[in-house]
Computed example of a mutant assay.
Amino acid sequence: MPRQAILPAALDATGFRLLNEWQRDFPLEPRPFARIAQAVGAAEEDVIAAYRDLSAQGLVSRVGAVFAPRRLGASALAALAAPPERLEEVAARVTREPAINHNYQREHRYNLWFVVTAASRAQLEEVVAGIERDTGCAVIVLPLEEEFHIDLGFDLKAGGEGRRPHADARSDEPIARGDADGGCALPALERKLIGALQGGLVLEARPFATLAARVGLTEGEVIACIARWVDEGLIRRFGVVVRHHELGLEANAMCVWDVPDAEVSGLGRRLAQEAAVTLCYRRRRVLPGWPYNLFCMIHGSAREEVLAARADLAARLGLDRHPHAVLFSCRRFKQTGARYLDAKDLAHV
C-alpha cells in the first residue's frame, strides 16, 4: 500500500529533488553542494541557500550521518506508563535528557516511548535510572536484537516508485556489536570525528574542511574516514535527513507482534520487504507487561491509510495469527539525531 508525502505548495521541482535524491549517496568530496548543483542545474550557492531554507522550515533535520544501531555506543527503545494527568510533566523530564533523541506519546498503557543513546551500556542504564527516580515511573528497556530494515529515509514520490529495495533486509549476516560494555571502541581521533558529525554538516561550500578543522584532521582524511564508515556499515547512510511530520506523513503506527522465537527472523525479513514498512526489527520482550518481539513502523498521511497498509501486509503474511497491537503516535515531544558521545566523553579525547 503506497504512502505519499504531502509536500509544501511552495516547494518547486528543484527543492523536491534536493529533499528526495540526496537522502543517501551524498557526495563525499570537497565541494559536495557543487556536485549536487551540477546534477540539478543550479548554482552552488543557490543549492546551499535552499538547504538552509529547508532546514529553517523544519523539513530537513540535518545533512549528515545516520549511524547503524549496535555499532556505536549503546541504544535502546524504552517506554513507561505515565499517569494521564502527569503525562506532560513526565514527558518534559524525558525530553530534557540529552541522551534522548526521540520522545513520543503513543496509544497504549505504555503511553510514552523514547529512544536512549549513550556512549556505553552503563551510561544508558544511568539515564534510565535517573528518569525512573525523577518521575516515579518504571521504564521498560527494549534493546535491539535483530535488525531487518533500519534506514530512516523516506521516498517522497507518489506511491514510492523510487523506493530502493531493503538491502539490509536480505542479509543473513549477524550485525556487529560494540565492545563488551556496549561502548565505542574506535580510536580517540575517530571518536572525536563522530562527536563532531552528530549534529550534521555545516551548510557551506566546503563542509568537510570545516569539520576537519574542528577535529584536527585534513579535509581528505575526514572524507576518507566517512567513506570507509559507509562501506563498513558503521554509517547506515549519509545524506539529507528529512522530518516526516513536516512533509505530511503525519500518521505513524508502531505495529508489534508476539512471534515464536523460531519464526521471528523469517517473518521479519519478509515484513521488511514490504513497501509500506519504514522500519523493521526484533526487540527483547519485557514480561509480563510487554510480550511483543517483532516491530515495524508504518508512516502515512492519514490514520486510515496506515491501518489499510497494515491490514494488507498482515493478511498476506499471516501475521495476525500471533498476538499483536497497533500503537499510533499521538504527540511528538522530541525528535533529534542520536548523540552517542556527549561533551563529557569528548573532553577526554
Rank of each mutant, 00 (worst) to 15 (best):
A311R: 09
A196R: 03
P69V: 13
A272R: 07
P98A: 10
A158C: 00
D151S: 11
R86F: 04
A39C: 10
A209W: 03
R284H: 00
G58P: 02
R170A: 14
A347D: 12
R214D: 04
L279N: 05
D312T: 13
Q198K: 03
L294T: 02
L18E: 00
Q335M: 15
I226M: 01
G199Y: 03
L294F: 07
A196Q: 08
Y51T: 02
M254T: 13
E219H: 06
E44A: 01
M1H: 06
V60A: 01
F33V: 03
E125V: 10
P2R: 01
H149T: 09
P8A: 07
V256W: 12
L279F: 13
N101C: 15
G318D: 04
K344G: 15
L80F: 11
E44F: 09
I6C: 11
E147L: 09
G199D: 01
F16Y: 14
R35Y: 03
A122I: 12
F295G: 04
S265V: 08
A68R: 10
V66E: 04
L313C: 06
G130D: 15
P323A: 05
L249H: 08
D134N: 10
R321T: 11
F67S: 04
F154W: 14
M254L: 15
E173Y: 11
P8M: 11
L80T: 05
F148C: 13
G58K: 11
E97W: 11
R243N: 15
L249W: 02
E44V: 05
R284S: 05
A13S: 14
S61A: 13
I150R: 10
D172G: 13
Q123K: 10
S265D: 07
E45H: 08
R310C: 07
F333N: 08
A308Y: 01
Q335N: 14
A212N: 04
K192D: 05
A302D: 15
R206M: 03
E250G: 15
L217E: 01
V202Q: 12
A79D: 09
N252G: 09
A34Q: 03
A79C: 01
A325K: 08
A275E: 06
K157Y: 13
E132G: 11
G195M: 01
R310Y: 13
L294S: 08
Y51G: 03
R321S: 13
A224G: 13
A205E: 05
R177V: 14
E250T: 15
A50L: 07
L87Y: 02
R270Q: 13
Q105F: 09
R321A: 09
A158P: 08
T14D: 10
A50N: 08
I235N: 07
N111R: 00
R228Y: 05
A343P: 12
C330G: 12
Y340H: 03
G130H: 09
R310E: 14
R331Y: 05
A49K: 08
H108S: 10
L186R: 02
S75D: 15
L267S: 04
L197G: 08
L313Q: 09
V259W: 03
Q38P: 08
E132V: 09
P260T: 07
L87M: 14
M254I: 15
